[in-house]
C-alpha cells in the first residue's frame, strides 16, 4: 500500500517537533570545551549515581512488577479494576506530589516510616535508597502495563495444554509463560528504566539533593542551569547519550512493532 500523503506530512511535523529541542541543545553545546566539562567531578558523580539508582530501581521493578502484572492479567481477584487504577496512579500523579506522598508514608514521621525508624533505625529520605524508592514509585507502572498487556493478548492455550499434559502451575510459569513473556519484559524494563533515569520531582521532594548521595543527573542539571548553563548542557548530553545507547539496541531486540530488516 502506498502511504497516504497527509499522514506522512503530519508524522513529519511530529518528528520535527520532537527532535527540534534536541537540535537546540546540540547547537548551544560548547563542543570545544566539552571534553573538559565531561571530566568534571560534578558531571561524573551524578552520572555514576544516576546509573546506580536507575539500574537498582529497574531490578526492584522486575521483582515487584512481574508477579503484579501476572496477577492483574490472570487472576480473577475482586476489585481488579480498582487495583489496576491504583497501580497506574503514579503515571498521572505529578512527581512532586508523589514525592510528598512518599514522605507522608515512608518519611521519618510517615505512616510506615516512623516504625521503620523506631524499630530498625531505618530512614529513607536523604539516602540513595530513598532515591531508588522514588524512582521505583514513578517507573513501576510503565513496566506493569507493558507486561500485563502482553499477558492479556497472548493466549493461554499453550499453558492450558501444558497443564493437561501434567505440568504443575509453577512449571508452566517457568517453562511456558516466562520465556514467551521475555520480549514484553524487556520492553517494560526499557521504558521503566528510562523513566527512572529522568526522574526529578519525586526524587528531590522525597530523597533530597546531596552530591554523591541523592543528586542524580536531572537534579544536577536543574541546579547547574542556574549557576553554570554550559555544565547543564553537558549533563543533558550525558543523559541523552546514555539513554540512546541503552534504548536503541533494546529497540531492535525487545520493543514491540519491530519488523524484519529490509
Amino acid at each position: 500500500m502506498r502511504p497516504p500523503r497527509p499522514v506522512l506530512a503530519v508524522a513529519t511535523v511530529a518528528v520535527v517537533f520532537l527532535t527540534l529541542p534536541v537540535i537546540g541543545l546540540a547547537q548551544r553545546t560548547p563542543w570545544s570545551s566539552l571534553g573538559d566539562l565531561l571530566g568534571r567531578q560534578s558531571v561524573v558523580q551524578p552520572l555514576v549515581l544516576s546509573l546506580t539508582v536507575s539500574v537498582a530501581a529497574a531490578l526492584v521493578i522486575v521483582v515487584l512488577g512481574t508477579p503484579l502484572a501476572w496477577t492483574l492479567a490472570r487472576v480473577d481477584i475482586p476489585g481488579r479494576r480498582i487495583i489496576r487504577a491504583l497501580v497506574l496512579l503514579p503515571m498521572v500523579l505529578p512527581p512532586v506530589v508523589g514525592g510528598t506522598a512518599l514522605l507522608f508514608a515512608l518519611g521519618r514521621r510517615g505512616l510506615v516510616g516512623q516504625w521503620l525508624d523506631r524499630w530498625f533505625g531505618l530512614t529513607l529520605p536523604f539516602t540513595t535508597a530513598g532515591a531508588v524508592v522514588a524512582a521505583v514509585f514513578v517507573a513501576l507502572p510503565f513496566y506493569v502495563i507493558a507486561v500485563e498487556g502482553a499477558l492479556e493478548s497472548g493466549s493461554d492455550e499453550l499453558e492450558q495444554m501444558a497443564g493437561t499434559l501434567g505440568a504443575g502451575p509453577l512449571q508452566v510459569l517457568r517453562r511456558i509463560t516466562l520465556p514467551r513473556l521475555l520480549p514484553a519484559m524487556g520492553a517494560g524494563v526499557a521504558l521503566a528504566w528510562a523513566r527512572a533515569l529522568g526522574e526529578f520531582g519525586a526524587t528531590i521532594t522525597f530523597a533530597g539533593n546531596l552530591p554523591g548521595r541523592t543528586q542524580t543527573l536531572p537534579l544536577a542539571t536543574f541546579l547547574a542551569l542556574e549557576s553554570d548553563p554550559e555544565e547543564a548542557i553537558a549533563l543533558s548530553l550525558v543523559m541523552l547519550t546514555v539513554s540512546l545507547a541503552v534504548l536503541i539496541p533494546m529497540r531492535d531486540r525487545w520493543l514491540p512493532g519491530r519488523r524484519p530488516s529490509r
Binding site: P125, F126, I204, T205, G208, N209, L210, T214, F222, L223
Partner: peptide
C-alpha cells in the same frame, strides 16, 4: 554537615 541542599528556602 548537610544532608540535603534544597532548591528553595521553602523546601
Amino acid at each position: 554537615e548537610a544532608d540535603s541542599r534544597e532548591i528553595s528556602v521553602r523546601a
